[in-house]
């Protein structure tokens, strides 16, 4: 009986994936490239401003750029624009640091009605939290590998 049900399930799942409307990969990749590229161009302009107008060295200019981009991502999220950019850009607007900012600001806005502690405090990192955990976690692993085998 279980085998028959499993078979039936598998057949249905195969049937569904055969009929399913497909995402337009070419179009999505193109718009991700354009939106992501545009964000990076803006970042580069800010970096150049930091270097040329404020006479920062390369490292400080990079930090300066990061701070400004996070700020812009947060502002655009607050104004309700970033979700529209994300609808078009997809990965192009998620991967740059503005997307990271968006993923922290948007739950903070969403859950403020549950209060500062259990709402904003607890929910702010629901989206970005896993990225931080595994980002920092993997850097530790890579650090160990470097320390024991490469150095």
């Amino acid at each position: 009986m279980d085998a028959i049900k499993q078979n039936k399930d598998r057949e249905y799942q195969k049937y569904v994936s055969a009929k399913m409307p497909k995402t337009n990969i070419l179009r999505n990749c193109t718009s991700a490239f354009l939106v992501g590229g545009l964000i990076c161009v803006i970042g580069q302009i800010i970096l150049n401003i930091g270097r040329n107008y404020y006479n920062l060295d390369q490292n400080s200019a990079a930090t300066f750029t990061t701070i400004v981009m996070i700020f812009l991502g947060g502002i655009l999220t607050g104004l309700g624009v970033y979700d529209d950019i994300g609808k078009i850009g997809g990965a192009g607007s998620i991967v740059p640091i503005t997307g990271f900012s968006n993923s922290i600001v948007s739950p903070a806005m969403e859950f403020k009605r549950e209060g500062f502690v259990l709402g904003i405090g607890a929910k702010m990192f629901t989206v970005a939290g896993p990225v931080l955990v595994y980002g920092i976690g993997s850097s530790v692993v890579v650090g160990f590998i470097y320390y024991f085998f490469v150095r």
């Binding site: 409307p21 999505n28 607007s93 948007s106």
Partner: peptide
């Protein structure tokens, strides 16, 4: 949306289905 999916202002794309 907030219960089942993502915060409203998060930039995500909908699947065709």
């Amino acid at each position: 949306e907030r219960q089942f999916r993502y915060p409203l202002e998060q930039g995500t794309q909908m699947a065709p289905t």
